[in-house]
Amino acid sequence: MRVLYLAPNIPVPGTHGGSTHVTQVHRALQRRGHEVLLLARTGSTEPGVLPLGTDLFPVYKHLVPAYYFARALAAVRRFAPDVVYERYSAFGLGIAFGRALGIPSVLMTLDRDASPLSFHFAERIVATSDEFIPARYRPKVRLVHWGVDVAGLSPEGAAAVRQRLAPAGERIALYTGSFHRWHGVDALVEVARHWDGPPLVIALVGDGPDRARIERLARSATRARVVSTGRVPHADIGAYLAAADVCVAPYAPARHPLFRVHGMNRDPIKVLEYMALGRPTVTIDIPRLRALFQPEEHVLLYPAEDARALSAQLRRLLDDPALAKKVGDGGAALVRERYSWDHHAEELERIFLEAMRREPVTPP
């Protein structure tokens, strides 16, 4: 089929989670034989991309459809899509193209911050949870899992990364991703302040609005060394993961306005990437992650924002090589079986076909 994929504020490829998501969905759909025209942010270099978008400015977000519709309509008509797949940050652009071309639109959303037009007129809604979806639209929801680029995560270069991060042979605990307060990275700084285990480097890979604050806090960490690398090309992330002894996703959902009300309901791509390379992983104990992973088999869990409990779980993995191997191997096997982007593309294909048949809305 021919899919018009709308993610106008997302650079493709890029280094943050949204870029990883859009890039991998685009590629996975193409691997399944579909033609995909992706409207993405200006500067995107991925083949098959129409780079017309800009960053998302909340005050103007509901003007997005009119702005992009006029600029992209000719190219979209030439492409002649069968279905529109709209990321929530397109704010109704999918509905505009769907109505203009007489084709169905499918909405992907992570939260309620999508256009009311998209919620109302989309044939189907793709999400990992329906808890935050307004009740009247839940019959249209089709639940999916996000994925990870298993084949694309190469460990090549891990020895050089390890030498650079831990030249004295210290153990490495690694965080990758965006720096927002709800990512809870300050818990790792707190671990570094009170660490009483083997010599440790806590490596923070990524960037974001909370990075400067985290780096200021890290100056007071004396029991373990904290290293902030800044952004790393996603093609190199595999080497950083493979260099680590343990990986950490220290989310703090209570700091996120939506998660505070509805709970954290997203599939954590960074955790899936950690697991894909067999890294023993520590993350927070919440219902969503217990639904995805078996504690002590695939992952170790601790109460969110409890730095002492996080430190204890890190010590368990660093002090017990057998446990670390068991958790690392178990997580890797699970991800390769269930949480790949190719598997996600199969889920989307079924949803697109359902939307194209204009089937009556019924619960899945």
Results as ranks from 00 to 15, higher is better:
Met1Phe: 15
Pro8Met: 10
Val12Arg: 10
Thr15Phe: 15
Ser19Tyr: 12
Val22Leu: 08
His26Met: 07
Arg27Gln: 11
Leu37Glu: 13
Thr42Arg: 11
Ser44Asn: 11
Pro47Arg: 02
Gly48Asn: 12
Val49Ser: 12
Leu50Glu: 08
Gly53His: 07
Phe57His: 09
Pro58Asn: 01
Tyr60Ala: 07
Val64Glu: 04
Ala66Cys: 03
Ala66Val: 07
Leu73Gly: 03
Ala74Gly: 02
Val84Gly: 10
Tyr85Asp: 01
Arg87Glu: 15
Phe91Trp: 09
Gly92Tyr: 13
Pro104Ala: 05
Asp113Ser: 06
Leu117Met: 07
Ser118Gln: 09
Arg138Gly: 12
Trp146Lys: 07
Glu156Val: 14
Arg164Thr: 09
Ala168Asp: 13
Ile172Trp: 03
Ala173Cys: 08
Thr176Lys: 07
Arg181Met: 15
Trp195Glu: 00
Pro198Trp: 01
Ala212His: 11
Arg213Asn: 10
Arg219Ser: 05
Ala224Ile: 11
Val227Glu: 11
Tyr240Ile: 04
Leu241Met: 11
Tyr251Lys: 00
Ala252Ile: 01
Pro268Lys: 03
Leu272Asn: 13
Gly278Gln: 08
Gln294Asp: 13
Leu300Gly: 00
Leu301Gln: 00
Pro303Asn: 04
Asp306Cys: 09
Ala307Pro: 14
Ala307Trp: 15
Leu310Asp: 14
Ser311Glu: 15
Pro321Leu: 00
Gly330Glu: 09
Leu334Gln: 01
Arg350His: 06
Glu354Tyr: 02
Met356Ile: 13
Met356Val: 12
Arg358Phe: 05
